[in-house]
Simulated scan of single mutants.
Amino acid sequence: MAVPRADGTWQGVDLREPRDWVDHPAPYRSRTVFAAAHVVADPYRENVPGAPAAIDWESTLAFRRHLFRYGMGVAEAMDTAQRNMGLDWPAVVELVTRSAEQAREAGARIASGAGTDHRAELRTLAEVTDAYLEQVAAIEGAGSQVIVMASRHLAALASSADDYLAVYDAVLGQVSEPVILHWLGEAFDPHLAGYWGSADVDTATATFLQLVETHADRVDGVKVSLLSAEHEVGLRAALPEGVRLYTGDDFHYPELIRGDGTHHSDALLGAFAAVAPAASAALAALDEGDVATYDAEMAPTLALSRHVFSAPTYYYKTGIAFLAWLSGHQPGFTMVSGLQSARSVVHLSEVFALANEARLLPDPDLAAHRLGLLLETAGARP
């Protein structure tokens, strides 16, 4: 199989034998793990920019069953599912409701994003609070744990750290069960620059910690997606006892999950939707205290994850959906809002090559055939 490179040359890729990955439907003993899952677009509907999301429910839910098969909880209706990039609120409600029902049947965990994005315009902090509470009620009503997502509306309206604290104080004061707080960095969503009231990360972190310390009994954990291992190591050591840090660092997750001997990170990762079987093998080894096998199983996944999440990072969802197509988890490579166009065929060809190297393609011949179809459609010929 030959794949194109950015300089116009072609690189040969020898298809590797797929691994017979071992199922692990039970949760892991040593770490709490969520994979953030994408949605599969209905190819017969108008999934174009600005149109309501039309979802292929059969394929979307089947992918969640695939994740449950490897012991992953599902982080639902997050940025991986194109939240704020095409997944509208009616689709979110149906997605969470359907996914939560599947999680109950499988005995698996599910946590779902609650934000403010169902409102086109919010003018005051009180309206932001009300919007958050509307979504929290819907997520809890579906039977899912809540992930309190960062709000673009709040980022636009807040003039100080106190504004953030006032809104989150009100929201956390009314949740029924402990939630996960999600601090999504600017690399994933430029609209969230300066979240927590400051562009200085240390200052913002101090505000964030103040919030967590005040509401420690209502916070299961925090997910901070800043792609800084150094920041995460410092933050997790400063968290109140009993509050988890769910790594969102798709560049450094093996070392962060392994830990430093004193503290470790749990996981809530879009990358795990791409590498679930290998991550499962690693986590199963970690449960047995076999750190060497954990490292060996995680190592081949990292180059793939770093490429999928390369800049502009917010388009990583395209790589996740592409891998699902290559792996036979969905019939086509179409996305809500036409986001399949967000990565080049050169980028996607490298995704294929790295997944092949990690032996994560269940049927390499099928994957090669599908990549060939994409390359031919794009006009790329050796």
Rank of each mutant, 00 (worst) to 15 (best):
G234D: 10
P27E: 01
V136W: 03
G12E: 14
T207D: 03
R29G: 15
V336C: 04
A158Y: 06
T124G: 09
V171G: 02
Y316A: 03
Y294I: 02
E230G: 12
R19K: 15
L61P: 08
H263T: 07
S30H: 13
R16E: 15
E186A: 07
V22G: 10
S344F: 07
A161W: 03
A281L: 09
R343D: 04
H263W: 01
A321H: 11
E140M: 00
E230Y: 02
S280I: 11
Q340K: 14
T60E: 08
S344M: 05
D295G: 10
H38D: 13
D79G: 00
L95R: 10
S112N: 10
P312S: 08
L226N: 11
H24P: 12
E127G: 12
G194H: 13
D79E: 12
A77G: 02
A204I: 00
V136F: 02
A368H: 01
A284V: 02
V3W: 09
A321R: 14
A53K: 04
V171H: 02
G261Y: 12
Y44L: 14
G259P: 06
H347Y: 12
L326W: 04
M298S: 09
A166C: 04
Q145I: 04
S228M: 04
E94H: 03
S349M: 05
M72R: 08
V13C: 12
Q82G: 02
T80M: 11
L154E: 00
Q102T: 05
R65G: 06
A271T: 15
V275C: 01
L157F: 03
R64C: 09
D79H: 14
A368D: 01
G107W: 14
D88N: 15
A103H: 13
T97Y: 06
A206C: 05
W10F: 15
T262A: 14
A103N: 10
V175A: 08
G12I: 10
V74T: 13
Y294Q: 08
S112D: 02
H369V: 06
V175K: 13
D295K: 05
L348W: 14
S112K: 07
G197C: 03
A358K: 00
A292W: 00
S176M: 03
T129W: 06
P382G: 10
T247L: 00
D220W: 08
D163M: 04
D217F: 01
R45D: 14
A77N: 06
Q145N: 11
S99W: 03
V171S: 08
V222Y: 00
V40G: 00
L286A: 12
D14T: 15
G261N: 12
S198E: 01
T293K: 06
A276N: 13
D287I: 07
L375A: 08
V33F: 03
A278H: 02
D7F: 03
V179C: 06
A150H: 03
P190Q: 13
T80P: 06
V345G: 10
A285H: 05
L209I: 09
L348V: 13
D189T: 09
D220R: 11
M149Y: 05
F68M: 13
E288V: 04
Y168L: 10
Q102F: 08
L326K: 02
P300C: 01
M298D: 04
